[in-house]
Structure formats: C-alpha cells, structure tokens
Amino acid sequence: MTDLTRRKMLGVAAAGAVTSLSTSAEAAAPATPPAASPLPNQDDLRAFVALSSVLTGIAVLKLAPTVDPIQVKNQYFDAAKADPAFPTLLQMVRSDPDPKNPVATATKVMNDPKLKFLGRSIILAWYLGAWYDPKNLETYNQPGDHPFPLNPVKVISGTAYTQGWTWRVAQAHPMGYSELRYGYWAEDPLKLDAYIA
C-alpha cells in the first residue's frame, strides 16, 4: 500500500513541485514562517508521526528525530489539524489496538472514504512541503476533466519546502537550497537508504 501510494504520489510530485512555484493565485504562498501556535499535545503528535511514517514509507526517526531542531512535524500537524476530518483520523490512530503496528490503522485510514483524502494531503505535505486541500484531492480523483496540474492551497513554509521528502527520495536537494558541502556534484549521491531508512 505504501509503495503504491508513494510511487503514484511521486508521479504527480514533479508537476506538483513545479505548480507550487507557479503563477497560480492559489499556489505558492510566500514562504514566510507560519505564526507561532501552541505546541501540539505530544501524544497526539507521536500518533500523527507514527501514521505519517507508514503513509510516507519514511522511518519515524527520520521524520521526527529525537533531537529535532527543525520541528517541521509541528507545522504538518497544524496543517492537518485544521481539516474537519482530523479529529476522526486522530481518534482512529489513538484507538489502534496495536499501536506498535500502525500499518493496519494506516490501511483503515486510506480505505475510509471520509479520511483517505486527508491521508493523501498528509503524504503530500511531508513530501512537497505544500498543503493540498483534501476536498480538492477528492474532486481531482473523480472521473472527468480536471485542470492539470492540481495546485496546493499553500506552501506551508520555507522550512517545509526545504525539508520536503521528495528531494531526499530523489537523492537530490530542493532548488535553491542544499546542505551538501562544496563539490558534492562531482560525486555519486548517497544511497536511498541513507535518506529514508
């Protein structure tokens, strides 16, 4: 489930990454830091990250290291929390009878017609640093002609853009930002496992 979701998402990611920088009025809100909001409940945040790990295929400690100066998880949590379906999603995760095996819960989320598009929005947030409205994703999923590409509501923040997992899965770096040392382009990129495992 996870692999299929990731590959399908990556097929749109290239277009999505471009459209997030497009001239569309809806896309690419200025990359300013979001206003500070109270920190999320830590148990809820852990549940959110555990679910995100299954949805994205990225290890929990990569999404949210123990020592985490960037804290981008808080921004994604806040973006998802604004959706009316989020409490239901969170409740489903909280009531998981086997929290050590979140795959079953993630499967339930992605099979629930009321929650699956929020699940997709969460995947896209982690990968692209942009928020796609679940309602727009649902509309896009229906048969018929739809404008291509689908634009996000906003780039969540400059930090979210630079921390997008699409760049790491591509074993590359975002346009205009790199943490790699001078001369890296002359060498082979690191293996994928170094980024996501």
Binding site: V67, P69, E179, L180, R181, A194, Y195
Partner: peptide, 17 residues
C-alpha cells in the same frame, strides 16, 4: 550540530536552525 555524523546533512542539523 544536533546530528554531527549525518551523511545526508553534512551541516549536522544545526540547533537552533
């Protein structure tokens, strides 16, 4: 550097950013 040995982030994930 909060992750001084990171191979993918040779900057070591600076803290604070």
């Amino acid at each position: 550097p909060s992750d001084h040995a990171s191979k993918t982030d040779p900057l070591g994930a600076p803290a604070p950013t």
